[in-house]
């Protein structure tokens, strides 16, 4: 296991999907790499990771993420129903009258309570169940992409995301590409960040989800700033909101056909445009100046 502390961690998130999280995180990653930082990008959008389509990199390792689920030996089971009572996730199906007991693997959270409940009879043992993988890719020495990838059909990506973030160390800066929304996988991602960059678009949908994200982050005590992507689209409501809530506007990216084209071709804006590379670097400096030192995560 590693004992090294990860570097300054920035999560790029948004309530609404499709606002440009991956666009921002891959370009920030690329910029920091150009400015000679040792940087790791963690793709935490484990249900559909796609950051690597922009960054490339050579696979250096794959780690399986598993959880322990119970297996019931019916020859030893006395049908007492204790394991069923202990399970708070409805993962044990039990009908006493019919002497029927089943483990519903899909619903199991791997807490182990049923195994404890069955200790007097020993009818439950545990097996490893695959949740997904954590894949490491190297761009150049010290510059890596970590990809969290949930197995199709697994109900929660939280454990895979947690393992991916944990395996990102030995870097000056860690950029986390968060999953959309404000549910558990998002919480798991931003929980380990020093600062959260929220990407929004100036539309009613973008506004509504931005507010939800800001409220959630404030509740968690996480500092955040906002990037307005596709600026010029929709209304100016978002800017009024930012000033009334005293949230920093980190960047304004216009709704521009040439930017959209670069992204849709799988390329990086900061690779093709030095001006934008400077802007991303300026934003990074602004964030670290304001939040880099004061934040005593460790």
């Amino acid at each position: 296991m590693n004992n090294k502390k990860p570097g300054f961690t920035i999560a790029v998130a948004s309530g609404k999907g499709g606002t440009g999280k991956t666009f921002i995180s891959t370009n920030l990653f690329n910029t920091l790499q150009k400015y000679s930082y040792k940087v790791t990008l963690v793709d935490c959008d484990a249900e559909e990771p796609n950051a690597r389509q922009f960054t490339g990199g050579k696979k250096v390792s794959t780690k399986l993420v598993t959880q322990l689920v119970p297996v019931i030996d019916e020859s030893k089971c006395v049908y007492c129903g204790k394991c069923f009572e202990y399970c708070t996730y409805n993962a044990i199906f039990f009908v006493k009258e019919a002497r029927m007991i089943r483990v519903l693997d899909d619903l199991c959270h791997g807490c182990g309570a049923c195994t404890v409940a069955c200790e007097p009879y020993g009818a439950i043992h545990e097996k490893e169940d695959e949740l997904g993988t954590v894949n490491h890719y190297e761009i150049t020495p010290g510059v890596t992409v970590v990809e969290a990838r949930t197995k199709v059909g697994v109900h929660s990506s939280v454990k895979v995301v947690k393992e991916a973030i944990r395996s990102a160390y030995d870097a000056d800066v860690v950029v986390l590409d968060s999953p959309p929304g404000t549910s558990c996988p998002f919480i798991q991602t931003v929980a380990s960040a020093d600062f959260v960059v929220l990407v929004t678009e100036p539309t009613p949908f973008g506004m509504s989800d931005l507010k939800q994200s800001v409220e959630t982050l404030r509740h968690m005590g996480k500092p955040c700033g906002v990037i307005v992507n596709r600026a010029g689209l929709g209304t100016n409501e978002v800017y009024d909101y930012l000033s009334s809530e005293q949230l920093p506007l980190l960047m304004n990216i216009p709704f521009d056909r040439s930017i959209a084209r670069i992204y849709s071709e799988g390329n990086l804006l900061t690779e093709q445009d030095d001006g934008w590379q400077m802007q991303f670097n300026l934003m990074y400096n602004l964030i670290t100046e304001r939040y880099g030192i004061s934040c005593n995560k460790w």
Partner: peptide
């Protein structure tokens, strides 16, 4: 009210009430 697995839990409830037939709009894959 279950956060997950409401379907299987409802089956247990009905089986405990000796139900032999169920009428509903849809039945999930679990």
């Amino acid at each position: 009210e279950s956060s997950q697995g409401a379907g299987p839990a409802a089956v247990q409830l009905l089986a405990g009430n000796q139900v032999q037939q169920v009428v509903s709009g849809e039945f999930g894959m679990k």
